[in-house]
Design a protein around this nucleic acid. Structure first.
Lengths: 349, 349
DNA sequence: ACAGGTTGTCGAAGCGCTTCGAGTCCTGCA
DNA sequence: TGCAGGACTCGAAGCGCTTCGACAACCTGT
């Protein structure tokens, strides 16, 4: 039998601090908020009392009086298809950044749906909202416009008017991969994307990567195929063998599917293609994945941390009433590693 | 209904509801909380007004007056070594379960450290705390005992007196793997564990799995080795080839390292061992991982969802002042799949 | 009929904090 | 010498909610 829930809490209040320091309650408040000038001596005395008593302001009272909860909501999908580790990176970055702005983070799962959002917003629990994994036609998006709370989206919906969105520039990411392969002399390349369901769900980043890939290749006059790819080992093997059969001269592969990337590297040698001798592979994935692969992957990294940090920073600006850009695209960065090389000989077949 | 469709910046309060329904504020409150009898007709009238006005109680005010925030803190490690997907599963389960108890979840990262915990608790932001990834000698644990808030730990510290802990029974998990292999006739088996740092950190689950493995094997009179294992492909290959060299008769492998498990399966054939013909592999990992592997893995699953749900349920009981068991161990469950088989070469009976 | 319960409702007192208006004292400048 | 104005500080009025004590009104059983 552990200690129960009902402990008569001897919580230290601002009144205790005021009495201990011999000042008015409001003075303590002003020391804490800095909203009015307080003499150095008084400030010191108050701060000393705060420390001595171990005072922490009551969040509820503060929220009630100031109409600011100092909490933001982080709405996560928690649904398959998204790669979890990246999601955690986002979440970490959001929490860390929020703390730097003296805010806490309320975790909301998308399966609460629009009603959950409405509840959170209307109850004044949070001052603002960060939404992740936005779909092209996301049911939460229209709601956001009615809500009294500022929000920032990670990802782009189809209709982004009046919203603040942050994301990696996936179009550029696709383009950069092509440019890299083109520079190495590859003329016949393929894009292996997310599972088909992700495209069907109209997920923006998948479509935009493909567009960047296809259109850039076109500009270079390079032959391309782009196709979805399941994440299982067998799925990958099947896609790949089919692909190589239909395109025997294929010498470059762009993989935009973190879960499949390891399988791709494992499968290619089995199909008689050495990486990077016979075929170059460039991935769009976190550095962590690229570095753990064998051979290490040339990759465009998804700057999860940057995105999370940006999102919170923008939200804070909005909370302070400042205008913010509607769209923030983070520049992708290519890191060349061991999985890409210049074409060795015309058609190794 | 003079509100012309558009919401005013100021929110609907309980006073608005009371006026709209023609009752006292306290009556509305009692309708909502059910703490006093209210006639059916009045209740209906109030509920209708609530719906009509779209009223949601102000969380701060409610927390202030009732001394209950209806929020729990979820403290995540967000540190390497833990497998992220499992962590997300925990988090999801915690959020979902908390919502069922009408609570929200505040996400706290461990890198805020003990001070962060103290702040959260002292500010009355949360009513209770769920801590994940507890280490044997966790600096947060002693603090927990001083805190005014009930808490539940996922994992066991070395000194668990006065605490409420939940976890998979890793000792049994290790034991079950041995029993399974023993039943198939294997007499020379090895445990491939987490990276060495995890053991050095004194992480409880790693040690307990090893103990269950070793002691059970001893009871069966089976030869064992137990060794840590890095997560990189090359690390795994190295460990494995060394292991097979030193123990040529090895016919069973227990892998307790989710990140390495795929590499193990990929490496064994390269070292001339077919699974399960030459060597049986049983893993301790989520079903998801086991099923995606090739061949599919016989595995003991980590019931992340159950653990998360249990943790929250226990916390809620504590919040209501009920006593709860100090230790809750969830029974591991072995699922036999394609990676284990009876020893082929006749062994001494 | 009346003491003694129920039931259903109300008003008011806070919960701990922020913030506004108002004071006190002390400058500096006409 | 007088006074405008800055620098500090204080008291009090809420913020929107819960909860406690009161109090009518309606039962009971005797």
């Amino acid at each position: 039998m552990a200690e129960g829930g009902a402990k008569r809490a001897d919580m230290v209040t601002i009144t205790d601090v005021a009495r201990h320091a011999g000042v008015a309650v409001s003075t303590v408040s002003y020391v804490l908020s800095g909203k009015r000038a307080i003499s150095a001596t008084t400030r010191q005395r108050v701060l000393a009392s705060i420390r001595a008593l171990g005072y922490h302001p009551n969040a509820g009272a503060r929220a009630l009086a100031s109409r600011r909860a100092n909490v933001i909501a982080l709405v996560l999908p928690l649904r398959s298809g998204m790669h979890l580790p990246v999601l955690m990176q986002f979440a970490t970055a959001v929490v860390t950044t929020a703390r730097q702005f003296d805010h806490d983070v309320l975790l909301v799962t998308a399966d609460e749906g629009p009603d959950g959002l409405r509840r959170i917003a209307a109850s004044a629990m949070v001052d603002g909202i960060v939404l992740m994994d936005i779909e092209m036609h996301d049911p939460r998006v229209p709601l956001l416009r009615d809500l009294e709370r500022p929000s920032v989206l990670i990802g782009f919906p189809a209709e982004a008017a009046n919203l603040t969105c942050v994301d990696l520039d996936f179009y550029r990411a696709g383009a950069i991969c092509v440019e890299h392969l083109a520079a190495l002399g590859h003329r016949d390349i393929a894009l292996l994307g997310a599972p088909a369901v992700v495209y069907e769900r109209d997920t923006g980043f998948a479509h935009r990567t493909r567009a960047g890939f296809t259109e850039t290749a076109e500009r270079y006059g390079i032959d391309t195929v782009a196709q979805p790819c399941e994440e299982s080992f067998d799925g990958v093997r099947q896609e790949l063998s089919g692909l190589l059969e239909r395109h025997p001269n294929l010498s470059g592969l762009v993989v935009h599917n973190e879960a499949a990337v390891a399988h791709v590297l494992a499968t290619l040698p089995l199909l008689g293609r050495q990486v990077p001798h016979d075929i170059s592979v460039v991935a769009i994935c976190p550095d962590e994945v690229a570095e753990r692969a064998s051979p290490t992957l040339s990759s465009v990294l998804i700057p999860a941390e940057d995105v999370g940090r940006q999102a919170v920073t923008l939200l804070m600006r909005k909370l302070e009433g400042h205008p913010v850009p509607a769209a923030t695209l983070l520049d992708p960065r290519l890191t060349v590693r061991a999985s890409t090389a210049a074409v060795t000989a015309p058609s190794p077949a």
